[in-house]
Simulated assay, not measured.
Amino acid sequence: MNLPAADESSHFPGLARVAALLADPGRAAMLWALMDGSARPAGELTMIAGLSPSAASGHLARLTDGGLLALDVRGRHRYYRIANPEIAAAIEAFMNVAHASNAITSQRPAPRPARTVPLEMRHARTCYDHMAGEVAVQVFERLVEGGLLVRDGDTLEATPEGAARLAAWGVDVAALRARRRRFACTCLDWSERRPHLGGALGAALLDSWTHGGWIERTSRPRVLRITPKGRHEFDALVGP
Rank of each mutant, 00 (worst) to 15 (best):
P85T: 00
E86Q: 13
P53K: 06
R151F: 00
A55Q: 10
N84G: 05
G198N: 05
A200Y: 01
V139A: 14
R108A: 12
N2K: 12
L31R: 03
A28F: 01
L51G: 08
T116V: 15
D189I: 10
E216I: 06
S106E: 08
T105G: 02
R122V: 01
A93Q: 07
F12N: 06
G75R: 10
R181E: 12
A56N: 05
G213N: 07
P118S: 00
A88P: 02
G153P: 04
A49L: 06
V73W: 02
G67C: 09
V238D: 03
P195T: 13
G147T: 08
H99L: 11
G239D: 02
R194L: 09
I82N: 02
A70H: 09
F183A: 05
S208W: 11
V137C: 14
S219E: 10
G14I: 06
A200P: 01
A200K: 03
G43A: 14
T218R: 11
N84R: 11
G170V: 02
L71I: 13
G199R: 11
Q138I: 03
L197V: 05
P25M: 10
G146N: 03
V135L: 11
D24S: 15
R225T: 07
C187H: 12
G133P: 06
D65A: 15
S219L: 14
M1P: 01
P4E: 00
G67M: 09
V150C: 06
W32T: 13
E216G: 04
S101F: 09
I48K: 14
L156P: 00
A20H: 05
R27M: 06
A100V: 06
A56L: 07
R151E: 06
R165C: 00
R62W: 00
L148A: 12
L148E: 03
R40H: 01
A164R: 15
A103L: 05
A49N: 03
L176N: 02
E134T: 15
P4N: 06
E192R: 15
A100S: 09
E8W: 08
E141V: 07
H77V: 05
D129W: 12
V135I: 13
A136M: 07
L149P: 00
T105E: 07
D172C: 08
E145P: 01
A20T: 11
E120H: 15
D235Y: 15
H211Q: 14
H123N: 09
T155F: 11
A124I: 02
P111A: 15
D152F: 14
G239L: 03
F94T: 02
R122I: 03
D36K: 14
A132Q: 04
T46I: 08
Y80R: 04
N84T: 02
P25F: 14
H232E: 13
D235P: 08
R40M: 10
W209S: 06
S10P: 00
R108F: 08
R122T: 04
G37V: 05
G198S: 12
P13W: 10
A203M: 04
G213W: 09
L21F: 10
F183L: 05
A236M: 08
A19K: 04
L71H: 03
P53D: 02
M1K: 11
D72L: 14
A164G: 03
L224R: 10
P195D: 10
T126A: 13
A136P: 04
G153M: 08
R182A: 05
H211I: 01
I48N: 04
P195N: 13
G230F: 04
V135F: 14
